[in-house]
Amino acid sequence: MDYEEQPLETLIVCDWYKLELSNPENLDGIDMNHDIYTDAEASVYVGCAHNWCHVKKLSLELISPSTYQISGELLVEFENEGVGENEPFNFTTVATYAKA
């Protein structure tokens, strides 16, 4: 992406998940993959390029009060925006749940 100033910001955005949880603070054990949540959408933004992706796995595991380990497996469709070839992206991170 030579036309954009480097380094580029990269964002993973997941939308339209209807989780139907009785307690939204209890996310332990949830897997937000697109085979289960068929109306959900996900995208990876690389700079201004909007790349759709298929969520094969997006699981949350409670590791301490309000803190989750998140493991993801995405298939990112880079070809639609001419960024590169479609490819898998796997990641693990830690996030803290906080009420707004």
Score class of each variant (00 low, 15 high):
L60W: 12
D31F: 06
T92L: 01
C53Y: 04
L58E: 04
E20A: 15
V44F: 01
S71V: 14
M1W: 03
Q69L: 13
N80I: 13
F89S: 08
D15P: 02
P65H: 09
D31K: 08
V13Q: 11
V76H: 01
A40M: 09
W16E: 13
P7G: 06
I70L: 14
A100M: 12
L8S: 01
Y97L: 15
C53H: 00
F78V: 03
E81R: 08
H54P: 06
S22Y: 07
V46C: 02
D31C: 07
E77G: 02
D15H: 11
S64Y: 10
G47P: 04
F91V: 06
N90C: 08
C48H: 10
W16H: 14
E5I: 11
H34Q: 14
T38G: 08
E87Q: 12
Y17Q: 10
P65V: 01
Q6S: 08
Y45N: 08
F78D: 00
S71L: 01
A98D: 13
I36S: 11
D15L: 14
N51Q: 02
E87G: 10
G47Y: 01
A100W: 09
F89L: 09
M32G: 11
C48R: 11
L62F: 10
G47V: 05
Y37D: 06
N33Y: 15
E4N: 11
L75D: 07
S59A: 14
D2R: 05
L74P: 00
C53Q: 03
Y3G: 05
T38S: 13
L58V: 05
I12V: 10
N26I: 05
N51D: 02
L27Y: 02
A49K: 01
E61G: 02
E73Q: 12
G84P: 00
D15K: 15
N51I: 00
K99T: 02
K99S: 04
V83M: 01
T92Q: 08
V44W: 01
E87A: 15
E61I: 09
T38E: 09
L60R: 12
A98V: 15
A49H: 04
N23D: 15
C53V: 03
G72V: 02
N80C: 13
W16M: 13
D39V: 09
E61Y: 08
H54M: 11
S22H: 10
A95Y: 12
Y97G: 06
I30T: 07
N33R: 15
D15V: 09
D15T: 08
D35W: 12
D28S: 06
I70W: 06
I30D: 01
I12K: 00
D28R: 05
E81Y: 00
I12D: 04
A40T: 04
K18C: 12
Q6R: 04
D28N: 15
A95F: 13
V13S: 04
E61F: 10
S43C: 12
G47W: 03
Q6A: 10
K57W: 07
T93K: 03
N26D: 11
K99C: 03
I12T: 07
Y3Q: 13
T96N: 06
I30W: 03
D31E: 09
A95N: 09
A40S: 13
S64I: 02
W52E: 09
E79V: 07
E81W: 02
P88Y: 00
M1F: 06
H50M: 07
E87K: 12
P7S: 07
M1G: 05
L74C: 04
K56S: 06
P7F: 05
L27S: 07
D31S: 08
L60K: 09
A42M: 04
I70T: 12
I12Q: 04
